[in-house]
Design a protein around this nucleic acid. Structure first.
Length: 422
RNA sequence: GCGGCCGUAGCUCAGCCUGGUUAGAGCACCCGGUUGUGGUCCGGGAUGUCGCCGGUUCAAAUCCGGUCGGUCGCCCCA
């Protein structure tokens, strides 16, 4: 029933990110951005919505994401637009549109953006979710594959998580490569159709590769002896994969070969990888990525090979649990005033500290001193700066170390230096 | 989109099976003990459309139906 309260609730599958958790959320995003920029990736922002056709062509018209999960709408000009379900298509579109690929290659970009998919929500799976990711476009050199993977792996580890890196190559669409393998796999599945779990039989026609993902015991038993793609790659793709692995070995990046790893979006070629963590339940992927050498042409642009990854911030935080990266308030000093007489001065003092680059906060509600001290403790500040009438008259401040409980009266003019000295 | 479980204070939950006085606890919050001092202790206080709509009943947080939301699994994926 229509109720005013209903509109006072975040839409299904969306979340408010509130303090104190929001500090940690922000810290994680910053760590990602710093890590990516330190490796030469420049920030990029693209529109939250794009032409629907961009995703249909890029992500794939038959993919689950495009057929069932897109938030599409028509604007007043009759254009069909879609809230982006993933980040790569828009970034590649922007690069081609603005001819970034006519300059120095590779074009290396990173993004941190909201994505939208209309799925049944669950822990770690929301309709609006935040991803951080990087894209390196303009070369199919195996060394850039290794660079991208290492950057993602290092980011996740420096955040405090312990992901398992799954690695595979899914070749390219040609008959002597993935298309050929696909036929081999279909033949195998047909030969064993009777042994497959009933609900998996239909995948032979729809998406044979996904049969590897089945949770059905009967199917798992059959698939144990199924042909794997890495045995059917063409010479160039096989060599590329060997080079990627050699680079990763040289970097000391630990990976697990997973010939059954298939990714959900149609544009992937060759290198495919996923960072998984068992504690996430059925949403076990913290993120993943791969090479997309055909994407630029699929969306109508010049040929432009590329590789990238996207990591889900919510899932990383879930995997971190309470460990790992920390974030918190940045108030160094909490000003404690003593009634009307000093309240106005307290704001002046707080502002003076802020202008000097020192985090400062104060009470605005005329609490008693006890209440203000409580606020001081809660604020996370290292110091309480007590400004009573005595201090005001003497031109001094009582500076209390909230950790040790020690306090001393100092000239008001020395406050900044005393705080900085810690 | 499909199936299971759940929905009581800001949070974690008890009460529901066996309808019946002002719906409770812990934590958090506010005030006081200490009109110049937090984190401990003691005392006091505020806070609920019992998710929502409807049905059964003299009476519903409690039983029934629907609905919304969450959660777990499926599908898929970050």
């Amino acid at each position: 029933m229509a109720n005013e309260r209903d509109s006072l609730r975040a839409p299904k599958g969306t979340n408010d990110i509130l303090p104190p958790g929001s500090f940690r959320w922000e810290a994680l995003v910053r760590l990602a951005q710093d890590t990516f920029e330190q490796a030469g990736y420049a920030p990029v922002e693209t529109p939250t919505f794009e032409d629907t056709a961009l995703f249909e062509r890029g992500v794939g018209e038959t993919s689950e994401v495009v057929t069932k999960q897109m938030y599409s709408f028509e604007d007043l000009g009759g254009r069909s637009l879609t809230l982006r379900p993933e980040g790569t298509a828009g970034v590649v579109r922007a690069v081609i549109e603005h001819n970034l690929h006519r300059g120095a290659l590779p074009v290396k970009l990173h993004y941190s953006s909201w994505m939208f998919r209309q799925e049944r929500p669950q822990r770690g799976r929301y309709r609006q979710f935040f991803q951080v990711g990087i894209e390196a476009m303009g070369t199919d050199s195996p060394s850039v594959d290794a660079e991208v993977i290492e950057v993602g792996d290092r980011f996740l580890r420096s955040a405090g998580s312990t992901p398992t890196l799954l690695l595979n190559s899914i070749g390219h669409p040609a008959a002597d490569c993935r298309a050929g393998y696909n036929q081999v796999l279909v033949d195998f599945l047909r030969a064993h159709e009777g042994d497959l779990a009933p609900e998996d039989g239909k995948r032979i026609d729809t998406n044979p590769l996904r049969t590897f993902d089945s949770k059905e015991e009967a199917t798992i038993a059959v698939m144990a002896s199924a042909p794997v793609i890495t045995d059917h790659l063409c010479g160039a793709c096989a060599e590329h994969f060997e080079d990627v692995k050699a680079h990763l070995d040289a970097l000391g990046v630990v990976y697990t070969l997973e010939p059954r790893l298939v990714r959900g979006l149609d544009y992937y070629t060759r290198t495919a990888f996923e960072f998984v963590w068992s504690g996430l339940g059925s949403q076990n992927a913290m993120g993943g990525g791969g090479r997309y050498d055909g994407l630029a042409e699929m969306i109508g642009g010049d040929p432009l090979p590329g590789i990238g990854f996207a990591l889900g911030v919510d899932r990383i935080l879930l995997a971190l649990n309470d460990a790992g990266i920390e974030g918190g308030p940045k108030v160094d000093v909490y000003i404690v005033a003593q009634g009307d007489e000093t309240a106005a001065e307290a704001l002046v003092l707080a502002t003076r500290l802020r202008r000097a680059g020192i985090g400062a906060d104060l009470d605005h509600t005329m609490r008693g001193m006890k209440g203000q001290m409580k606020e001081a403790a809660r604020s996370g500040a290292r110091f309480a700066a007590i400004l009573g009438s005595d201090e005001l008259a003497a031109g001094e401040i009582t500076l209390r170390d909230l950790t040790s409980g020690d306090q001393e009266r100092v000239p008001a003019t020395d406050l900044e230096s005393k705080v900085r000295a810690g």
